[in-house]
């Protein structure tokens, strides 16, 4: 098995606040890892470290064979890592001044110098795949939240990433739109995409995850197969968290 992400003894601070404590975590190729935890537990920060949107203070981080140095170190590998790691944000972060099609075409053309014709064909294929094919020439603001998030997934896929990061991809959506986004993610997982997903959708985690990780105050306190973590949590923190989120 190939390791796509390797974290060893990773620590991250916001000023004096110790947000990630001694994180050891590996993600294998094709694995779907779902990270759960209360807000402020550091789960978003954890995946944001993977593509360097957050810098970490010490420890070790290797993404798809590229070592990413801690803060102040040589960050040359960052460009390579970001080409290979796609990210989907809670707030979609589509480019409002570009059409949906151009949103998807931008990165391949700028980063990989893909020709306009090829980038356009790729964009159409990906937009079809996420069910937005007939809206390609609209602007993001003309789409619903669920549609925007599916465009954001297509935009990330256009770079042919080896790993996809999802940072609470359904948290900003109206309830009736959550399903359509989760469907696309489920499909992606089935096709073998390596994924790290931060989410509060426990149903999705149970169904799609190969491994569930529970983070509490910056520490991984429990991890395992979804059935084990959800039905038979060992750590009392995990038990308390799950009883709170699963009870309603």
């Amino acid at each position: 098995m190939t390791q796509i992400v390797e974290m060893k003894g990773m620590n991250k601070y916001f000023g004096k606040l110790h947000v990630l404590k001694n994180i050891d975590l590996t993600v294998e190729q094709g694995e779907v890892v779902v990270i759960i935890g209360a807000s402020g537990s550091g789960k978003s920060t954890l995946i944001r470290c993977v593509n360097g949107l957050e810098e970490y203070e010490n420890g070790k981080l290797v993404v798809d064979g590229h070592a990413l140095a801690p803060k102040g170190g040589n960050q040359k590998s960052l460009a390579e890592i970001r080409k290979e790691v796609g990210m989907v944000f809670q707030q979609f972060n589509l480019f409002p001044h570009l059409t949906v099609r151009k949103n998807v075409m931008l990165a391949p053309m700028k980063v990989k110098s893909t020709s306009q014709t090829v980038a356009n064909a790729t964009a159409e294929r990906l937009l079809d795949r996420v069910g937005i094919g007939n809206q390609a020439d609209k602007y993001p603001s003309q789409l619903s939240g669920g549609q925007q998030q599916r465009v954001a997934i297509a935009r990330a896929l256009a770079m042919e990433p080896r790993l996809m990061l999802f940072d609470e991809p359904t948290s900003a959506l109206d309830p009736e739109m959550i399903g359509e986004v989760l469907d696309v993610m489920r499909e992606l997982a089935r096709e073998g995409m390596t994924m790290m997903v931060v989410t509060h959708e426990m149903g999705f985690a149970r169904e799609v995850a190969d491994r569930v990780i529970y983070i509490h105050e910056g520490q991984i306190v429990e991890q395992g197969k979804p059935a084990d973590v959800f039905d038979n949590p060992q750590n009392e923190r995990t038990q308390a968290f799950l009883s709170r989120v699963l009870s309603h």
């Binding site: 360097g52 700028k110 990330a156």
Partner: peptide, 9 residues
């Protein structure tokens, strides 16, 4: 962040 995460400089 979206631009950077896509690999843009």
């Amino acid at each position: 962040e979206a631009g950077l995460s896509l690999g843009l400089s």
